[in-house]
């Protein structure tokens, strides 16, 4: 199916839906397309991959969306820019994509740990960044940990944070595997940025256990006079907020030994296409879709599109 065909056969859902394109057709891209499909505010006009045989492209076609195997070039040559482009490729590819997309005035929502754009964790930063047209969703471990480290640092004298995430092997695609360095750097940077704690560490495990382990993040915090009951209450309040967009987000354990507290978080996926254990993809994609939906209501977007608000 050609991109042009998709552009002329729009599937309007509301009076003025945001037009979106997705680059990347791995596990993230596929789930993203399914979530966009469910959103009345978003109109998917193009799904771009590199491999014509990819299951992600076939899935997008099955939902009736325009697809292309020409990657970023297909977006650049589209007759009219998309309002929003989701980049679900890899950190290195995103660094190449951004200078090409920037002149188009598109809002770019980056799901790779590229560190290029402004970091968003919905319950902490809101979903409508004040500046810039490049929004970065940090990482799956960042989305899981930032709400809790932000809340803990506001209530307790934390001197060190460590966030250890475990992802099931079959939902860690090639880009994720090649991006472990970026994952570590970007996640640690987000923990510092949103907690103010400079001594931090991020670790990612990829587990091939059968049956697959549900996505989890252990947040270790060093603090004087740790009270596990008070810590858990703060973590639970943060989790409650996260559940407004990622309903499978839970505090599953909270323990304290001396000045060391460990809070274990799990995320179950609520998705049309993901297995329940793939909460890593569900939480980052849910956040990304919220950013795009919020954008649909923004006056600057309406002005750019020439529509009175």
């Amino acid at each position: 199916m050609s991109p042009a065909a998709g552009l002329t056969s729009a599937r309007p859902k509301v009076a003025d839906p945001v037009t979106v394109a997705v680059i990347g057709t791995g596990a993230i891209g596929r789930d993203l397309v399914s979530k966009i499909d469910r959103s009345p505010a978003l109109d998917c006009r193009l799904v771009a991959g590199r491999n014509p045989a990819s299951a992600g492209l076939r899935y997008a076609e099955s939902l009736g969306y325009a697809t292309t195997a020409d990657g970023i070039e297909a977006l650049l040559t589209a007759p009219r820019p998309f309002d929003v482009v989701f980049d679900a490729t890899s950190a290195a590819s995103h660094r190449d994509h951004w200078p090409l997309l920037e002149p188009l005035g598109t809002l770019v929502i980056d799901l790779t740990p590229s560190k290029v754009g402004q970091m968003v964790a919905p319950t902490v930063t809101g979903v409508s960044p004040a500046t810039g047209r490049n929004v970065n969703l940090i990482s799956c471990g960042g989305q899981a940990s930032v709400p809790v480290v932000h809340a803990l640092a506001a209530h307790f004298p934390v001197s060190y944070f460590e966030v250890v995430s475990t992802v099931a092997s079959d939902v860690a695609g090639r880009a994720t595997r090649l991006n472990l360095d970026e994952y570590v750097a970007t996640t640690a940077n987000a923990v510092t940025t949103f907690s103010g704690v400079t001594d931090v560490k991020a670790i990612l495990n990829i587990s091939p256990a059968v049956p697959p382990a549900t996505f989890r993040t252990a947040v270790h915090a060093r603090m004087a006079d740790a009270d596990p009951v008070a810590v858990r209450a703060v973590a639970e309040r943060a989790a409650e907020q996260v559940r407004s967009f990622a309903p499978g987000y839970e505090v599953v354990a909270c323990t304290a030994t001396g000045d060391l507290v460990t809070i274990t978080l799990e995320v179950m996926a609520h998705s049309d296409v993901l297995p329940p254990y793939a909460g890593n993809l569900d939480i980052i994609n849910s956040a990304a879709v919220m950013v795009a939906e919020q954008y649909a209501t923004r006056p600057d977007r309406a002005l750019r599109a020439g529509v009175a608000s």
């Binding site: 250890v164 475990t166 670790i203 495990n205 587990s207 091939p208 256990a209 059968v210 382990a213 989890r216 252990a218 599953v252 354990a253 323990t255 460990t262 274990t264």
Partner: peptide, 16 residues
Amino acid sequence: RQAIAGQEDLIVDVVA
């Protein structure tokens, strides 16, 4: 549970 090296955080869950 087929815990692999690095998943020390699972110990807490199993003990609990």
